[in-house]
């Protein structure tokens, strides 16, 4: 692996390698000294063209726990028309001495362009590009799901995948980079993925994805999922033509108290209710009720801590290997 750009081009073995490495990184977090020396002397730049404090902090914590130097570059609003080009920004960072660029960008494909551009020799980690992909989010979701799935089967997670697991992704699929990364990775790991959304929030072309599609959340719950992943409804979608009102959205596609009761009765990985995931931040009362947000089935805080582990694993695999053997395998 030279870069991490999307989960669509991530092989089964690469995915397992990242997840297994992340398990080791998780163990570091339980030690008194939460730090490894593997990336000492290496520089990671968080290049953020849109605000995302959570993702940036997670990457920052990951890089620091690996003893890398971290620089944060907020380039919100940067564009050809408004200022510096991506090319010039990146070449500046390279000249400063970056080894890896973790990039969040509002434009789909920006990370792939950067990796293919020849503008930099840095490893590129896609920290979310427009409505395209957010691969580390999918990886941390997979790590969370695998923990639960393996525990329910009475064995450790390492070396295992999600074969046989049924996962629902619920909400605004059309604009979601989380869904676009999750679908490919979960599919690669052997899970069966169902999408639940109003037809207006599903992309034209979704019929070609390796998923089942449901317009009814209740019918989808009847199919017996082991995990339900709720997506955030962006404020800017509300009041548009995608759905009539937030209240109607909540009634039909929200994880309400009534649906929470059904989720609690589902056969989860361990037979005790399905897992609830949410990429955060949650809109309480919109896509998820307060009770569902606070339910013991909800793994949202596990997801946050797994995010650090996964990002440590990715940075470690991208940087320490190329450092050791001098190659760009």
């Amino acid at each position: 692996m030279r870069h991490l750009l999307s989960t669509a081009d991530l092989s089964h073995s690469d995915a397992l390698s990242i997840l297994d490495t992340a398990e080791e990184m998780s163990a570091v977090a339980t030690r008194e000294v939460k730090k490894l020396p593997t990336l000492r002397g290496r520089t990671v730049v968080n290049l953020f063209f849109e605000d995302s404090t959570r993702t940036r902090i997670s990457f920052e914590a990951a890089a620091k726990r690996l003893s890398a130097d971290v620089m944060n570059f907020s380039a919100k609003g940067s564009s050809v028309s408004k200022g510096e080009s991506l090319k010039d920004t990146v070449q500046t960072l390279e000249a400063i001495g970056a080894d890896a660029i973790v990039m969040r960008h509002w434009a789909s494909g920006a990370a792939a362009q950067l990796a293919a551009s020849g503008w930099t020799d840095c490893a590129v980690v896609n920290a979310g590009d427009g409505t395209h992909e957010h691969p580390t989010q999918a990886l941390l979701d997979a790590l969370t799901l695998r923990r639960g799935w393996a525990a329910g089967r009475g064995h450790g997670p390492r070396g295992t995948d999600l074969t046989g697991m049924r996962v629902l992704i619920v909400g605004d699929i059309l604009h979601s980079r989380v869904a676009r990364s999750g679908v490919w990775l979960l599919n690669t790991l052997g899970a069966e993925v169902g999408l639940v959304a109003p037809p207006t929030l599903l992309p034209v072309g979704v019929e070609q994805w390796p998923v089942s599609v449901h317009y009814s959340f209740d019918e989808a719950l009847a199919s017996g999922p082991h995990a339900v992943m709720m997506l955030r409804v962006q404020a800017e979608r509300m009041g548009g033509a995608f759905f009539p009102t937030p209240a109607e959205y909540t009634r039909r596609w929200g994880l309400t108290d009534e649906r929470l009761a059904r989720v609690e009765r589902l056969n989860g990985p361990g037979g005790d209710g399905a897992m609830i995931l949410h990429p955060g931040p949650m809109n309480r009362g919109v896509e998820i009720s307060a009770a569902a947000a606070d339910s013991p089935l909800n793994r949202v805080l596990d997801q946050v801590s797994h995010g650090v582990s996964v990002r440590m694993a990715v940075l470690h695999l991208l940087l320490s290997q190329s450092h050791d053997d001098g190659s760009s395998a």
Binding site: S108, G109, H132, R177, R180, P203, V204, G205, Q208
Partner: peptide
Amino acid sequence: EGCVSSVLGLPGWP
């Protein structure tokens, strides 16, 4: 707008 745009997350021109 179609299969490829659905994967790439680029707004479609139908």
